[in-house]
Computed example of a mutant assay.
Amino acid sequence: MLGKTLAWLLMTLLALLVSCYAAALLGIPEFRPTLVRSLMSERPLAAISHFGGSALALAIGAFQINGWLRARFPGMHRWAGRFYVAGVAVGGVSGLFMALQSSGGMSTRAGFAALAVCWLVTTFLAYRHIRAGEVVAHRRWMIRSFALTFAAVTLRLYLPVSQIAGIPFPVAYAAIAWLCWVPNLLFAEGLIRATLPARSERRRPAPKRSTA
């Protein structure tokens, strides 16, 4: 139990740090690295939408998958979920546009485009299942969705490691376009199989009051 709590705290801290970093990229032009400056210059609307939407989803997502918080603050969980879905919608659509318009190689474009599509699809399915009252299915898809949201963190962990290792940036970036999210999704699948049942579970309808 302690190990699970510490893992969640570390994940949440990393998510919040990267979310703050994305917000700083939007608010402090001098803070932007060369790649971000190019994106802001060439595709400003898409870049602002992607960084803003992704930062919002990243800041909210870790809290949404915490069972203790979900059980004690259900109203806040629902409202935060709406903002999370909005952040993914904005960040995912703009991310897909940026990926398809990227000047990187085919592998880089395909990797980031696939990430954007999977991110949008998993989040939509999570939303659809909770609207249908299928709580367990919703949680399964939310775990997948946040694993893809967390790609923003793993991307920023792999990049400096690749540079320290002396791997040329174009080569490293093409690989990281896949490595930043595919292992996350595989880990999420293992977690789902270990902790959640395969069947969907609907909310029980509230008992009807007698009018007699």
Rank of each mutant, 00 (worst) to 15 (best):
A188H: 04
L148R: 02
L96M: 13
L196S: 02
L16G: 13
L115H: 10
G75K: 12
A23I: 03
G87S: 00
S210Y: 10
F51R: 00
T195P: 00
R82C: 12
L196A: 02
R72G: 12
P33L: 05
A174W: 00
G75P: 03
A113R: 10
R43E: 15
A57T: 00
E201A: 05
M76F: 10
G95C: 11
P168H: 10
G91F: 00
Y127K: 08
E134Y: 05
G105A: 01
P197Q: 05
M11C: 12
L179E: 05
A151N: 03
H77W: 04
V36S: 09
R140N: 09
L159Y: 04
C118K: 07
H77Y: 14
M1T: 08
G52C: 01
V18I: 06
H138S: 03
S210F: 09
V171F: 15
S49N: 04
F187S: 15
L148C: 03
V36C: 05
A152P: 07
A24R: 10
I28F: 15
F169R: 12
G190Q: 11
T108P: 06
A151C: 02
P33W: 06
L58W: 00
P207H: 13
R70P: 13
A152K: 14
V85D: 00
R144M: 03
I164W: 07
R43H: 13
F97V: 07
I167Q: 09
S103Q: 12
H138Q: 00
L58Y: 02
A174I: 01
A114I: 09
F146E: 03
L125S: 12
A99C: 03
G53R: 10
L179D: 13
A46S: 03
R203W: 13
G91R: 00
A126C: 01
A152M: 02
G53K: 05
P168N: 14
R203N: 15
I130C: 05
A62R: 07
L191D: 14
Y84P: 05
T122M: 09
T154I: 05
G104Y: 12
A116S: 14
G91V: 00
S210W: 08
S103H: 09
F124P: 15
Q101F: 07
F169H: 05
H50Y: 06
Y158H: 07
A165Y: 05
G27E: 01
L125D: 14
A137S: 06
R156G: 00
T195Y: 10
R202N: 14
N66F: 02
G111M: 02
S145D: 01
T34I: 14
